[in-house]
Design a protein around this nucleic acid. Structure first.
Lengths: 250, 250
DNA sequence: CGAGCGATTGAAAAGACTCAACCACCGTGG
DNA sequence: CCACGGTGGTTGAGTCTTTTCAATCGCTCG
């Protein structure tokens, strides 16, 4: 844990660090004023709960492509995304990443392995500059134990994800790459809005579950069909309805 | 809830009347004497908890290929498998089944949707004759609320499944059908042992995520390579190590 | 300004699917 | 008891999607 903390002792306020000199000072973002919190599992916390939460957490700044945790290691706490996007992925036999989920502000990451008693089955790393708070395992489990609302929120979240993954599996097994790409773009549209989708082609391919070259060709098709606009690396969804039609039902 | 109960009561009548030879009377299997329980989430229940459980549940006999619940409907309770195998699956756009999981004795099925507040994202139906107990939603949720051990067991289970599905997704996305089949056979070997794997080719194909014809050809290959034995419908694993090698890491 | 990574394109090869036909086993009803 | 129908299993051939390999381009960053 200590190494992890050291690693991330520099700090936050993306708004300040956007382009100028990269002075990331380690400011403590109070949960009470966290803009991402309203959509999170802590959204309905009252004042004294927020104080408690503030006590037990630490805030950290992450650069692009920094790992939060790695498949196979054991969890020591959970991560609460204040700003930025994070990819959650596994590696197949040849080391190729399969992205399972792209997390955005407000999401809590890494609590699955906290309950399963197993090591992480997935890895997580930042896709861009991020501000991420960290809550130690013990504190987190205590909160779960003593706070039924939070606990139910967690169970609901676990359950929802489980359902989503069933659909994901079915899509992987039965849809063509073209359909899966359309599906993926719709999901990413939701994650990134109001911004444009901003991923490397490789990450996008690893989310869709295809080869990078295939992905590129299909993106070109979509562009020619007028459903997306390609701005170098960034993708703009032009016709979401058409995408839905391409993606098929669900 | 009532309609579901009616349905299952009917099952018993039907079963009794249809195969009179087989005498599947609707006996109440006491949880205390349930042989499947020791491996289940209720494995460590004490006497008075078992009494309570017995109170709130009903026992039902299911014929082969009977549905427990269907994608899109809302859950009214959970199913506890006393005997027999059950497939859990979703349907893709063209109605093709994708089997997500094959459950065996001792497993509790259908609790995901209980917490998510969503309708079922999957369907479940019996693969053979089954004895299945049913616990109503309210009773079940009360148990969860008041019994921390059970609750933690459930959370652990949800978490484990979530991890397994991440692996499943990666396999689907990156492995060849041949590798996936090897992987699937190993899983099924575990589920079915000490019996032989007993599924229709179509179900097996829908678990692996391929066409029935492709599956059959690959089974033949495996047989010729000496890793399995085919006894009409039943499959015997001859060389699990070799299967593991074929399946790749993990 | 050069190195290097990410993006792109083309051509060939492979894996898997679809379609169509046929077989074989099993329980049913005549 | 046997013919029948139906489901599940098997095989072959052709097609098509997708991958792989190889090469090129282009932008960004030090």
């Amino acid at each position: 844990m200590s190494s992890f903390h050291k690693m991330s002792i520099n700090c936050n306020f993306i708004s300040e660090t956007l382009d100028c000199m990269l002075e990331k000072s380690h400011k403590h973002v109070s949960c009470a004023s966290c803009s991402a919190r309203k959509d999170s599992l802590f959204g309905n916390y009252c004042d004294h709960e927020l104080d408690e939460l503030d006590e037990s957490k630490s805030c950290n700044y992450y650069k692009k492509n920094q790992p939060l945790f790695i498949e196979g290691s054991f969890p020591r706490g959970v991560f609460c995304l204040n700003g930025g996007k994070v990819k959650v992925f596994t590696r197949g036999d040849e080391g190729k990443e399969q992205i399972i989920h792209i997390a955005k502000e407000g999401e809590i990451i890494g609590f699955r392995a906290m309950f399963s008693g197993e090591p992480y089955k997935v890895s997580a790393s930042t896709l861009e500059e991020c501000n991420i708070c960290y809550i130690g395992k013990e504190d987190f489990l205590n909160m779960i134990e003593s706070n039924a609302v939070l606990r139910n929120g967690i169970m609901k979240e676990l359950s929802k994800e489980l359902g989503e993954r069933a659909v994901f599996i079915t899509n992987m097994a039965q849809k063509s790459v073209r359909e899966r790409l359309a599906f993926a773009l719709l999901i990413l549209h939701d994650v990134y809005k109001p911004e444009q989708i901003n991923l490397t082609r490789e990450d996008l391919a690893n989310f869709v579950g295809t080869a990078t070259e295939t992905l590129i060709r299909l993106l070109k098709d979509f562009k020619e069909e007028g459903v997306i606009e390609i701005h170098t690396r960034k993708l703009e969804i032009v016709d979401a309805n058409k995408l839905e039609r391409i993606a098929g039902a669900r």
